[in-house]
Every structure is written in C-alpha cells, then in structure tokens.
Amino acid sequence: MKLKYSLFTRRQFLNGLFGGWLGALMVSFLYPVIKFVFPPTREPDQVILPFLDFKDMKPNSVKVFSWGSKPGFVKKNKNGSYWAFVAVCTHLDCNVTYIPEQRKFFCACHDGWYDENGTNIGGPPPRPLRRLILIIEGEDLIIKREGVK
C-alpha cells in the first residue's frame, strides 16, 4: 500500500534524526563515565597463605585473613580439620565474629546467629555463611573460591 501523504512532516523527521544522533553521541560519552564510576572490583580467585601461621591454632578457634577487601576466617575444627569462611553476614554485609564458648558465629548488627558450621540458626540472616575451599599443600594454605580450578 502506498500512502498518499507522509505520516511525518519534514520537521518531525529532522527532529527525530537529530535526537537519535545526539542520543547516540551522548551514550558514547556516557560509556567511559560509567566505566570510571563503576570500576571492576573482582574478588580474588585464590589466596595463598603460609601454613606456618595457622599450624598452632587451638581447635575451636578462628583466625582472620583478608579475602580481597573482605575479612575471611580460617577455622580449626575440634577434630583438627581446617575450614574457611567469608566472615561477612549474609543479611546486610556486616562482619561477623566467632564466639568459641558458644561455638557460634555472631553478627552484632542485627543479632544474627550461625552455628559452628556456618549455618544460619537465628535472627535475620537468610543464608549460611559462604564457605571457601581450603587446601593444605606442603607449606602453603591455599584458599579458593568455589568453582575455580
């Protein structure tokens, strides 16, 4: 079907074209701004720590290490095995503490409780504490993100 008259006036067409190009140009200016303002903050794939520092830990205690910009806990269990957690509450990002007497992790911000396995047992936390993979290789303690080879 051929229309007898154009649906747009010349002015509307020009305005649309102008706005489109201007918008495209602005978007290409915006791209570096967004890249700058939101820099990529990647958490580390793995952290290697000297095992010597953790050898003498008492069972049922934790030691802090830095997991990127977050704190991490290396926990020595009663049976002498080591676990690693990201020591950040799953509720609203507060750092948690370990209370050895009660064998619980505690988040002071909103009264969140986790048991010694990191499972959320009381208060607002929706998920268990995040576990990290911990491997002891000779002198090194290697802590990895899950899913990293």
């Binding site: 002015r11 020009l14 074209l17 102008f18 190009w21 201007l22 495209a24 140009l25 290409s28």
Partner: peptide
Amino acid sequence: VFVVWMWIAIIVLIYILRLKIKE
C-alpha cells in the same frame, strides 16, 4: 573507533543543525 565515530556524529549533527537553522 571512538574518535572517528564522534567526528562522524558531530558532522552529521552539524549538517542537520544547518537544515534546522535554515528552517
């Protein structure tokens, strides 16, 4: 690519602006 694209866009925009100014 950005510099080339920017100048193309600027030239096109100026061309359209000239038409609009005439109008």
